[in-house]
């Protein structure tokens, strides 16, 4: 997902104002920091699902469970919002053909329902995905306009 990592936390924060929106959004986007090796590489891997992006600890539920405890220093709502934001990233990412390491550290296997494409070029021009992303975008706009 591209825009959904922003629109979904905005929807969650709009529906449940108890959450800290900043922590939700940071939690929902911090996983993307592992895209650096993909941006720096000169040749793409033969199989695009072998990209480093989305295959590190940042793209696991385990990371957010562990991060929850030190973040409690900042308060329970912030720690919980960060974890929920992170979980939203992992679960919507897991919908693609690559899946995500949902059972890490017990298993390094990638799990997911294989509903969406992983490749950027096909992703951005897929009607089904575009409809999904645009719907989330419209809900976000509606929530923001009528709050």
């Amino acid at each position: 997902m591209i825009l959904a990592h922003l629109t979904l936390p905005l929807i969650i924060g709009g529906v449940f104002p108890q959450f800290n929106l900043v922590a939700l959004l940071i939690g929902a986007n911090i996983s993307s920091l592992d895209a650096l090796p993909t941006l720096l590489r000169t040749k793409p891997p033969k199989v695009h699902t072998e990209e480093t992006h989305a295959a590190t600890i940042l793209h696991t539920l385990f990371f957010f469970v562990i991060a929850f405890f030190p973040l409690l220093i900042l308060g329970f709502p912030i720690a919980l919002s960060f974890m929920v934001g992170g979980f939203s990233h992992i679960f919507i990412d897991a919908l693609d053909e690559k899946g995500r390491m949902l059972c890490y550290p017990f298993s390094r296997k990638f799990y997911g329902p294989d509903l969406l494409t992983y490749d950027f070029w096909t992703y951005t021009t897929d009607k089904k995905i575009f409809t999904l992303e645009a719907s989330l975008f419209l809900v976000t706009c509606a929530l923001w306009l009528f709050k």
Partner: peptide, 24 residues
């Protein structure tokens, strides 16, 4: 369409978070 949606979401985030947008 992607660029327009991205810009609108960015504006919503800036309007909602203010300076905290920089942290994001």
């Amino acid at each position: 369409a992607w660029i327009v949606m991205g810009l609108v979401v960015f504006v919503i985030i800036v309007k909602t978070l203010g300076w905290y947008t920089l942290a994001l």
